[in-house]
């Protein structure tokens, strides 16, 4: 599906930028990340089948920002922020192995990045069912990923 970048930008960029601001807390970094999100979308425009791509863009934004946060030195400002930075810094085996291919898989609705799942559930407040719907996994699949995250020592509990 070819993308009209300007039309997509007009419709979705404010949402993507708000997401990036929420995660990165810094306007310039958020603006850069927002552009990266649309570049990722363009990169896969021929695989795109979503009629309403807000979920996809939101999840790509989460992934892009998590990668930026991993190398960031910023200190947490709130409890949610503390959880977010803790998740961003986690380097579990799934993400080490799979993160590089996460966006490719996202477009084909294959299993998602554990860290992105964790942000949706623990920071955004999606239920397990909503998280599963968001990333195209079963609830048990999401639960299993989050168990793995907790087993690696992250102090997280189901919301």
């Amino acid at each position: 599906m070819a993308i009209d970048v300007e039309a997509y930008y007009r419709k979705y960029a404010p949402m993507v930028l708000r997401r990036c601001r929420f995660m990165l807390r810094e306007e310039e970094a958020a603006l850069d990340a927002m552009q990266d999100v649309f570049v990722e979308l363009l990169r896969r425009e021929h695989d795109l089948v979503h009629a309403a791509p807000s979920s996809l863009l939101y999840t790509i934004a989460t992934h892009v920002c998590l990668n930026r946060l991993r190398s960031s030195k910023r200190r947490p400002e709130t409890r949610d922020d503390e959880i977010l930075l803790s998740i961003a810094g986690d380097d579990g085996p799934e993400d080490r192995t799979l993160s590089g291919h996460f966006l490719d898989r996202l477009f084909t609705r294959e299993p998602d990045s554990t860290r992105t799942i964790a942000v949706l559930h623990y920071v955004d407040g999606f239920t397990l069912e909503e998280t599963a719907a968001q990333v195209g996994l079963s609830v048990s699949g999401v639960r299993k990923r989050l168990r793995g995250l907790r087993a690696r020592g992250l102090a997280l509990k189901d919301v």
């Binding site: 949402m15 309403a52 955004d124 999606f126 968001q134």
Partner: peptide, 11 residues
């Protein structure tokens, strides 16, 4: 309600 759902409502 998660922010995304509000965003999607607005969209």
């Amino acid at each position: 309600v998660p922010d995304l759902l509000i965003e999607q409502y607005a969209l």
